[in-house]
Design a protein around this nucleic acid. Structure first.
Lengths: 108, 108
DNA sequence: GCAGAATATCGTATATTTCCGATGGACAAG
DNA sequence: CTTGTCCATCGGAAATATACGATATTCTGC
């Protein structure tokens, strides 16, 4: 594929966004954010999806660096990776501050 | 499709994220943020994509409410929609503050 | 070792996305 | 009215993503 992204930072940001930009995965992230304690396969019960599907979504989020998985005996616990969320928050802050202030450009 | 999103707000957020979570579209948003003045089809020159493809991406962003298009004589000018960026920034702020503070959960 | 529970991975069908060339519509200049 | 420019839209091909059931894998407890 042709390289569209200008910098590595940009590619990283897009990768993070692609991981979160899915109904099921975004819901997982919100669930993990709600309970400050890490939860495990309760996520499967909380979502209308098959176990294997949830597992795949967790893998996507883990590969993107948004969540962290810890094996704890028979089950695996997941929790958010604060650095990733902070990165995205900072990225949007930079975008939001610079914005076309002109009312309508050519209309003025 | 089964409704995974819990609330309308959540669905809206995911829709915005899906629109931005693409190399070409994210680049477009950054380009529009860089020049505070609205640009037009210069975007086609700035991207290694066909004109029709860029136009489609602009349509996706416009439908999502992230950018606004204004017809100005022979050409169309686009600029960011500040409200959309602010929404996302706020959404990530809420996620970032609530986060698993426990070092490792079961490891402690 | 064996059985069972909790996850991960594999194979695969389906749906969606992405991209392009070609076509169409609107506008300005001549 | 004709031409050229700019942009949007229309098929359609190829790549990718999503979801599932079936099948490993890993650990606990007996």
């Amino acid at each position: 594929m042709k390289p569209i992204a200008q910098s590595d930072d940009e590619a990283k940001t897009v990768a993070l966004l692609r991981a979160i930009a899915h109904p099921a995965r975004f819901r997982i992230v919100k669930l993990l954010a709600a309970r400050d304690t890490c939860v495990c396969g309760d996520l499967v019960d909380a979502l209308p999806l098959a176990q294997s599907t949830v597992s795949e979504h967790l893998k996507v989020l883990k590969d993107a660096g948004i969540i962290r998985g810890t094996i704890s005996g028979p089950n695996t616990c997941y929790c958010l990776e604060p650095a990733a969320l902070a990165w995205l928050e900072r990225e949007f802050g930079a975008l939001g501050s610079a914005c076309c202030g002109a009312p309508g450009g050519p209309l003025a």
